[in-house]
Design a protein around this nucleic acid. Structure first.
Lengths: 348, 348
DNA sequence: AGATGGAGTTGCTACGTTTTAATCAAGGTC
DNA sequence: GACCTTGATTAAAACGTAGCAACTCCATCT
């Protein structure tokens, strides 16, 4: 009797989800047969299968994942823990993970640690509670303990964008030392004299390795690696980059070349420098890392180090699922990709 | 006997996860008491609680989420389905969702539909299988059917960035008609004559509403709304924007003002125009939508329409959790935020 | 002393599924 | 006709937890 007729759809009528038993009753078979149709369809006769399948459709049956997990002892779910989902680098990795996982019938639970150890820990706890089949993680620091706790539980772990800490684990990474060296080599080739490194939290391996590469490039050019000035920020975001620019500008002498540990930092630095009237690349050469999509769209398009990001996610997932599905034949692997230099306007 | 000593950690020794029974045995209580410590700690005496808690720590017990969900009939999990996690707009929404959800002890399963109905459907299936407590979704089209199927199962649904389709549901949105009008008003105020609208898939409500706003602004200025030229792309990404620019450049006469349905499109269009030597804003005024972080960092910083993105996610989660936790007293709400105009360099 | 009450704890059952072993029917072989 | 084989189906027993009803203490009140 309502004006608009919405009430024809029984709003609060939440009949309980039909179970495998209801399907079995409707199809005139036993619950076990329905389970077979779901999990081993080749084991059941064509006619029966059709009957069960149409019963499933008719009732709108959806398998109860929790019951399934409980009984089977494992789920069809993997956990992915990243440091900053706001960073396009990780978004691309996640895309690679999700694509392959869903091809193989796995669902992905995404956890964002925001660089915080506490949140990372909480995400791992959620993964453990959900009894995920495996975990992909880009650790926010070097502490290996928590991951062993997962493995003890039978949860496979693959490190993403992080080299293996031990031979008995899988890992997929990109050579950050090489990348850092490439970046600084390029700056030096452009005539850089005073090079500074704008980086994130000291605990992050990526930051350390890129620094090592930078120092190596300086040494190779006959310079003292200790000449490398460093501006470390607590986060690797554009906002942090802008603050880094302010720090740099407050110093007596401005470096003439900046290597930023990722593109977000670089974009922030770029904005800060331009706002202060510093010309890029004429006064300061600037190179970032990751080659995110936005690097080529910025005010002064950003030179950067490209990583095979999507491939990174896919490869890591491939290793993880192999370890899950073939635990006996699985051989642990460490895959190391190589980065590329992308030259644009921000460097001389 | 290995050289490096790694084998001290028993690699493959995956002892089964301890259950509530093991904890009970160690603490010398019944399994029911352990369950009480976990779920109703105030019901159990301090000394007993301590004993149980230290047993939990000692064994490294982690609650089996699936068993809990199965028995309790519902999980502590919500599903979030977005159209494009590569778009910073949705990343910010997701941040708002995750923050509030984890404050309230809920885990978030993130699903990315990439604008594909098939993937969206698959995500909803995963949510249903996981028996999530509720679903937050930015629908990729206008079809309400699937959501009713969820509600019938007792899964609450809140629409995000989408107005309610019916009075018996919660929704959180931003007024896109107003936003579209703001954008085109601003273009007209800058002296725009031939305005074009660069948009995404026609089925997307956001695109339709922003267009309606644009037409309204034209009409209000005494112009014929049918003058609004339209370039529709299949995706709302920077790559699609660049293609849109090519399309525009191939036409006889270039518009002198462009309104893009989001910032990614706008950044792509901007790149395409600049590469072709078109000056922005002198020859073409350009405005985007969403005011993502990168809008202010682009070659020519982008004028845009700002939305309270993080708040959008938080508010939607607030409504959803209220509906889940207080189903009796819950009153369905439709929240409509208002957008803001942000003027930068890309418009006259 | 006996009854009452409350706090703390326990035993039991059910949740929906998977899986193993058992059952059954139909057909084939000697 | 007895026996085996093959293929299809089923009955029944778990999996780990939540939550209720029942029970045990022990202190307090009549």
């Amino acid at each position: 009797m309502s004006i608009d007729g919405w009430d024809e759809a029984p709003a609060g009528a939440t009949r309980p989800s039909p179970s495998i038993k209801d399907v079995a009753a409707l199809a005139g078979v036993s619950p076990g047969t329905v389970s077979n149709v779901l999990n081993r369809p080749e084991k059941v006769a064509g006619a029966t299968r059709d009957r069960v399948e149409s019963a499933i459709r008719e009732l709108g049956f959806v398998r109860h994942g929790s019951a399934s997990t409980l009984r089977a002892g494992h789920s069809r779910t993997i956990g992915l823990s990243v440091i900053d989902i706001g960073n396009p680098f990780f978004t691309d990795v996640a895309a690679g993970v999700e694509d392959l996982a869903s091809e193989r019938g796995y669902a992905v639970i995404l956890g964002n640690s925001s660089g915080s150890r506490v949140k990372e820990e909480r995400n791992l706890l959620v993964f453990a509670e959900q009894r995920v089949r495996g975990v992909l993680i880009t650790p926010s620091d070097q502490d290996p303990i928590r991951l062993d706790r997962l493995r003890e539980r039978g949860i496979s772990v693959v490190l993403v964008d992080h080299p293996a800490e031990r031979p008995d684990q899988c890992a997929v990474a990109v050579n950050d030392v090489t990348g850092g060296a490439m970046a600084v080599e390029h700056l030096l080739a452009g005539g850089a004299d005073r090079v500074a490194y704008v980086t994130g939290p000291a605990a992050m391996r990526q930051c350390q390795d890129r620094r090592r590469g930078a120092e190596r490039a300086l040494a190779a050019a006959g310079r003292d690696p200790r000449d490398l000035r460093e501006v470390a920020m607590p986060a690797m975001t554009a906002a942090a980059g802008q603050q880094a620019a302010e720090k740099l500008l407050a110093q007596d002498v401005l470096p003439d070349a900046l290597f930023c540990a990722n593109d977000l930092l670089a974009l922030g630095v770029l904005r800060g420098l331009l706002q202060a009237g510093v010309r890029v690349p004429e006064e300061v050469s600037l190179i970032g890392y990751d080659d995110i999509d936005f690097a080529s769209a910025s005010t002064v398009s950003l030179s950067s180090i490209r990583q095979p990001t999507y491939q990174l996610g896919r490869a890591a997932t491939e290793l993880l699922l192999d370890e899950c599905d073939n635990p006996d034949t699985h051989a642990h692997q460490q895959i190391m990709f190589q980065p590329d230099l992308v030259v644009r306007e921000s460097t001389r």
